[in-house]
């Protein structure tokens, strides 16, 4: 177990210290960490407007314990965490599991001290976004958002923001897109800043749509719903398994299952399934290894034209046009 004490901030002052703690170094925008701790990439970028992005795509070779003690409290951290393996955050003595199939989006105020634990062998893909509180205020003012208590929300003495949530399916795929890009260079920087903006857009959309806060759902129910989501993703190439089967898996009545699934993911099970299926189809098309009819068969669409019409409905472009201009 290696313990690292570090801080983050919404400028780049944390980078040097962070690399030093790992016995690593900073090269350009990369943080190089010794291979015996982890392999992979860490990349940071100042996106302007008081926003810093920190990209992590690594595999851990050791159990790691990170203690975050920030010296400045003027920022909020958004952690999009897609860890395959085990990763937990504890704040105020409560423990949250933050890997891919758990709370994969955490919003934590800079004033808070937190402990992050990750186990050996975990593969982490994460994007951390640090935003200055003053930028949030400015943003709200510029866009005439009505937060009657914005000053209270942003005042570190009165309120600390902390929220554990799940990112929307859309955000997940935006991140997945970024993951495919080669890190470094001006083209990647454009993509990274673009991704940050789109994630913020999604987050705002979520705030505006006033979906229930996931933290308020009781734990076993949430776990069951997530496990059915996981089941759907694992069987994304098969037929839709039926609500009955899914509800049984979740130990709920069909109606409860449907309502809760909708509340948590913002989508019906079938829509969630179809959306992911189409995104899978898009990935397969991008690989250029298969023909359209091969893909439609593989994903168990009844026929090609149904596949094409669904694809067009979702992306606005037919699969054929998509392949042509790839």
């Amino acid at each position: 177990m290696k313990t690292i004490e570090h801080f983050y901030s919404a400028d780049l002052s944390w980078v040097e210290n962070f690399a030093k703690q790992y016995n690593g170094k900073v090269e350009g925008n990369f943080i190089i960490v010794p291979e015996d701790i982890q392999s992979g990439t860490r990349y940071f970028l100042d996106c302007g407007e008081g926003i810093v992005a920190y990209y992590i795509n690594v595999e851990y070779k050791k159990n790691l314990h990170l203690i975050q003690k920030n010296s400045s409290n003027d920022f909020v951290g958004f952690y999009y965490n897609l860890t395959d393996g085990e990763a937990t955050v504890s704040v105020h003595n409560s423990l949250y599991n933050v890997s891919r199939w758990q709370y994969n989006l955490s919003v934590i105020d800079g004033t808070l001290e937190s402990d992050y634990n990750v186990t050996k062998g975990s593969k982490t893909f994460a994007l951390c976004i640090f935003i200055k509180k003053s930028s949030i205020r400015e943003y709200a003012l510029n866009n005439r958002l009505k937060f009657p208590n914005i000053d209270e929300i942003l005042n570190p003495e009165k309120n600390t923001m902390i929220r554990f949530d799940r990112m929307s399916n859309e955000s997940f795929h935006i991140l997945d897109d970024l993951r495919k890009k080669k890190v470094g260079g001006p083209v990647f920087d454009l993509n990274l800043v673009g991704t940050v903006h789109m994630l913020i857009a999604n987050y705002l959309k979520k705030l505006a749509s006033k979906r229930i806060i996931i933290q308020t759902v009781n734990q076993p129910d949430l776990t069951s719903i997530i496990s059915t989501q996981m089941y759907l993703i694992e069987h994304i190439e098969d037929h839709f398994p039926s609500i009955k089967l899914l509800a049984e898996k979740a130990n709920m009545s069909e109606s409860k299952f449907k309502t809760l699934f909708n509340k948590i993911t913002g989508n019906t099970p079938n829509m969630f399934f179809m959306e992911n299926k189409l995104l899978r189809a898009k990935e397969l098309l991008e690989s250029k290894q298969f023909s359209i009819s091969q893909i439609s068969d593989r994903l168990n669409f009844t026929n090609n034209s149904y596949f094409a019409s669904k694809f067009k409905e979702h992306f606005g472009v037919s699969p054929k046009t998509f392949v042509q201009d790839l």
Partner: peptide, 21 residues
Amino acid sequence: DLSFDSFIKGTALKLLGNFFS
């Protein structure tokens, strides 16, 4: 929409990114 501003910024950057890559 509240999220439009961020969304179009993100889109613009990604468009440029795609073009250059």
